[in-house]
Design a protein around this nucleic acid. Sequence first.
DNA 1: GCCAGGTCAG
DNA 2: CTGACCTGGC
Lengths: 267, 267
Amino acid sequence: MRLRLATWNVNSVRLRAGQVTRFLLDQAPDVLCLQEIKCRDGEFPAAEFEAAGYPHMRIRGQKGSHGVAILSRLPLEDAPDLEVCREGHARAVGARVAGIEVQNFYIPAGGDVPDPEANPKFAHKLDFLGRLTAEAARRDPTSALVITGDLNVAPGEFDVWSHRQMLKVVSHTPVELEAMEALRAAGGFTDLVRAAIPDPQKLFSWWSYRAADFRASNRGLRLDHIWISPGLRKAALDGGAEARVHDDVRAWDRPSDHAPVSADFRL
Amino acid sequence: MRLRLATWNVNSVRLRAGQVTRFLLDQAPDVLCLQEIKCRDGEFPAAEFEAAGYPHMRIRGQKGSHGVAILSRLPLEDAPDLEVCREGHARAVGARVAGIEVQNFYIPAGGDVPDPEANPKFAHKLDFLGRLTAEAARRDPTSALVITGDLNVAPGEFDVWSHRQMLKVVSHTPVELEAMEALRAAGGFTDLVRAAIPDPQKLFSWWSYRAADFRASNRGLRLDHIWISPGLRKAALDGGAEARVHDDVRAWDRPSDHAPVSADFRL
DNA sequence: GCCAGGTCAG
DNA sequence: CTGACCTGGC
């Protein structure tokens, strides 16, 4: 059995419920993790996704910004809530599906100034990554765990359009790259999309709204990730890793600034 | 020759350019006076109306609220600008068409509290009506003059859904009714729509957005008017006055809260 | 540049 | 309820 897992920062699920449904029908993921749903639980367009064949959901909404959710066509069981957001934002939701624990995150973007003293949003981002690292260190590496979502860090040189320029810009600063590596090491995680599409292939999942033609300028970043624990390596990597960035979705009418990312597991 | 003149508070002409075009094609007015265009001159969808057969325009736009315009299929000549708005809002525009002077107004709504001491918006409304009355008194009654637009007063008992309740509500308070009667008397004007559809027939041109079903509750007001000078009585009344409120337009998808009003002249 | 939310006005 | 505009966030 193949299990396909996707993640997408949808930037308002109410405005893009039709696009989510189209993606579900086109790509048939078994599980779709959403970030920035930007609505309360009761405003989530659950009926539309249920009608599309995804009756199983975990919704962690809130008014205004943030908000995360998991849609599934397979039954979901509870997974532990991770205490990673000191500000009480709806930025984490977890569930178990087909024996795999999926933890879906919307990590704070971190503001403009990459200095935790001057910029509390950047401090919060580092705090969030630190708490998540502490959680990961507590886990049994042999268990089946996926860490996914909009992690708001482009960890590698080929995950940004210009490594040199981006080292000064939040999402690719040295302190963020170190925090991401510490998180990876703590859980022994494998970056599954990079395993499928190795360096030096440039790979982006986000392009600013400001560019008129995102393909022409292609100043993207890879902020959206699917990381797997050692216990999932066999299912994800044996026979070759399968993953992709659905950048065609970024070209749809009135798109999110993020493209969906998906990967397949053999169960 | 028949000349059909219409007036419509369109509540954003950019949002409803398609509805304006549909109304022009359906009803074929020779002249359409618009209020609350809510755009600057350069943002007015002139090309669309020109393509619909209305190449002659007078646009008095401004950023944000207010803004008035006249569309015509017949050539327009200049008419005097009336100095009626002490606040410098774009609330008046005039033109001569087929020998008739058309003065198109968007009179201030006047806020909630019908007390000029407590509510400067109500004071402004009364001031506007007073200045317009002074202008009307200066005019030669034998000249052909139309006063039209969203006058924001329902002058008669049968122009409101409840005369008793509305006497306390801005748009139908005694002081406004007196100001409207003073204006009417100053120019010797005839309320052309009432001449065509006499009391006690209830007649409304505006219904609040707040009612889910405006026809069911029918709590309307007649705020939009076409008034004619004594010099136009023959053209408008001989052989029977012809006028109507296009309330079907209020039922269109995403409508203005005002319906268009039209009347015919024989030239 | 897009989105959400608050404000002001009708 | 609806529309425009502003601000903050990304």
